[in-house]
Amino acid sequence: METDIPAVVAEVTAAFERYETALVTNDVATLDALFWRDPRVLRYGATEVLHGWEELAAFRASRPSKGLARTLGRTEIHSFGRDFAVANTTFTREGQARLGRQSQTWVRMPEGWRVVAAHVSWMD
Rank of each mutant, 00 (worst) to 15 (best):
V41P: 05
Q102Y: 13
H51A: 11
V24S: 12
A97V: 06
T71G: 04
A61S: 00
M1P: 08
D4P: 05
R43P: 01
A97W: 02
A14H: 08
V28P: 04
L50D: 05
Q104V: 12
A118M: 12
F35A: 06
A58W: 03
R37Q: 15
R60V: 00
V8S: 07
L56P: 00
S121Q: 15
N26I: 09
T30I: 11
L99H: 06
G95V: 00
K66N: 02
I5K: 03
Q96K: 14
R74E: 07
T71C: 01
L68K: 03
V116F: 11
L68C: 08
Q96W: 12
A97S: 10
Q102R: 09
T3R: 11
G52W: 05
L99A: 02
G95D: 01
T47I: 08
V107N: 04
T47Y: 10
V116N: 13
A58K: 06
F16W: 13
P6Y: 01
D124N: 15
A10H: 11
A85M: 07
F59Y: 11
E2Q: 14
Q96V: 13
G45F: 03
L31Y: 14
G81E: 03
N88Y: 00
H51K: 08
A14T: 11
T13Q: 13
F91K: 01
D38F: 09
R37P: 11
H51C: 10
L23E: 14
E94I: 03
Q104P: 11
G112E: 03
R70A: 01
G67R: 01
T75M: 04
F16L: 15
V41Q: 06
A7C: 10
Q102K: 08
G73Q: 00
A29G: 13
E94G: 03
Y19E: 03
N26D: 15
G73K: 02
L99G: 06
V49P: 02
G112Y: 04
Q104F: 15
T89A: 09
L31E: 12
A118W: 13
L50M: 04
D83F: 10
R101N: 10
M123Q: 15
E94K: 09
A10S: 08
G112C: 03
A58D: 11
A15K: 10
Y19G: 03
R74Q: 05
T30N: 05
V41I: 10
F84Q: 02
L72W: 02
D124Q: 15
R108G: 13
G73P: 01
R93L: 02
W106P: 10
W113R: 05
R108N: 14
S65G: 11
I5V: 08
T89E: 02
T25V: 06
A7H: 07
L31T: 14
R74Y: 00
Y44H: 11
F35L: 08
E54V: 01
M123H: 15
L68R: 00
W106E: 10
A29E: 14
M109V: 14
F35N: 07
R82M: 00
L31S: 11
W122C: 15
F84C: 07
V120E: 15
A61G: 02
A57T: 02
Q104W: 11
L42I: 12
Y44A: 13
T90C: 11
M1Y: 10
A46I: 09
R70T: 00
A15M: 06
R82K: 00
R63Y: 03
A117N: 14
W53N: 02
F80S: 04
A22K: 08
W36R: 02
M1R: 06
